[in-house]
């Protein structure tokens, strides 16, 4: 099985790094939560409700970043047939789905006190909801198609086609009239936020990114092991009784 020659090297590396990725993620989370809930000042307009930002914005960043990684891994799987690329994409999907769900739910909890409504069907909220369904569709596709190479192919196509949604999410607040505010960190003219709020936000962003890496390693190890298990079982069945 040539496909396992490569994952073996990755596994050695991932096993060594797993405790460090969790340590780094936990450290950044503790610092980030302290900055977000204690050190950061209340907003002059929104008061303490603005603290929702420190869990809402990083979750929304990760929702898009994880999907972007999934689409890139799918492209790599298509072009170079790298055996780990499909594993990385498949392992990412549930992580991205959870981040997207959190962006939506924390957004509702922020929208209700600030906008007076939990939900509006505006371009930003709707495009993020579509992102959530893309993740779900991708996960379902893997489990619905039994033959692994065909499932992988279908999943790659969905991941790549769905990537069209990413620029739509990013620019939705500029292209359409939305209730959602425009970007205040990733702007061409630089962040518009005071450092006292930007530092906690970026720390939480780093923590969520590290958490993604830690979760990705764990899920990739699980996926490699279950694929290995499958070939072992198929191999055993092939032996005539």
């Amino acid at each position: 099985m040539q496909a396992y020659a490569n994952p073996q090297r990755f596994l050695t590396f991932a096993r060594k790094l797993t405790p460090w990725t969790w340590g780094a993620a936990a450290t950044a989370l503790i610092i980030g939560l302290y900055l977000a809930l204690v050190a950061a000042p209340p907003d002059y307009q929104q008061g303490d409700a603005a603290r929702i930002m420190y869990v809402h914005v990083p979750a929304a960043w990760m929702a898009m970043f994880v999907y972007g990684s999934m689409a890139m891994a799918s492209a790599v799987a298509f072009i170079w047939k790298h055996p780990l690329a499909d594993v990385a994409a498949k392992a990412s999907a549930p992580i991205g789905a959870v981040f997207t769900a959190l962006a939506l739910v924390t957004g509702m909890l922020w929208g209700q006190p600030m906008w007076g409504t939990w939900w509006v069907w505006d371009a930003r909220l709707t495009s993020v909801l579509i992102l959530f369904f893309l993740y779900l569709g991708y996960i379902v596709l893997w489990s619905a198609i039994e033959e692994p190479t065909r499932a992988a192919r279908a999943a790659r196509i969905l991941a790549l086609v769905g990537a069209i949604n990413l620029p739509i999410i990013k620019f939705s607040v500029d292209w359409w009239n939305t209730l959602h505010q425009t970007a205040s960190v990733f702007r061409t003219d630089g962040p518009t936020m005071p450092a006292s709020m930007l530092t906690p936000l970026l720390t939480m962003g780093l923590a969520y990114t590290l958490l993604y890496v830690a979760l990705l390693f764990v899920r990739m190890r699980a996926e490699i092991a279950s694929r290995r298990l499958r070939t072992i079982r198929l191999g055993l069945e092939a032996i005539p009784a």
Binding site: L33, L37, D48, A49, R51, I52, V55, H56, A59, P94, I95, V98, A101, L102, V105, T106, L109, W110, Q112, P113, L211, A214, L215, V218, R219, R221, A222, A225, S226, L229
Partner: peptide, 27 residues
């Protein structure tokens, strides 16, 4: 609004971590 936002985030991420870790050790 603030505490549920943090609480749900913590719960969901911890649950994902536990489920993923269990699946890995089992496999």
């Amino acid at each position: 609004y603030v505490w549920p936002a943090y609480g749900i985030s913590a719960l969901a991420l911890i649950a994902l971590a536990v489920v993923s870790w269990r699946a890995m050790t089992r496999a």
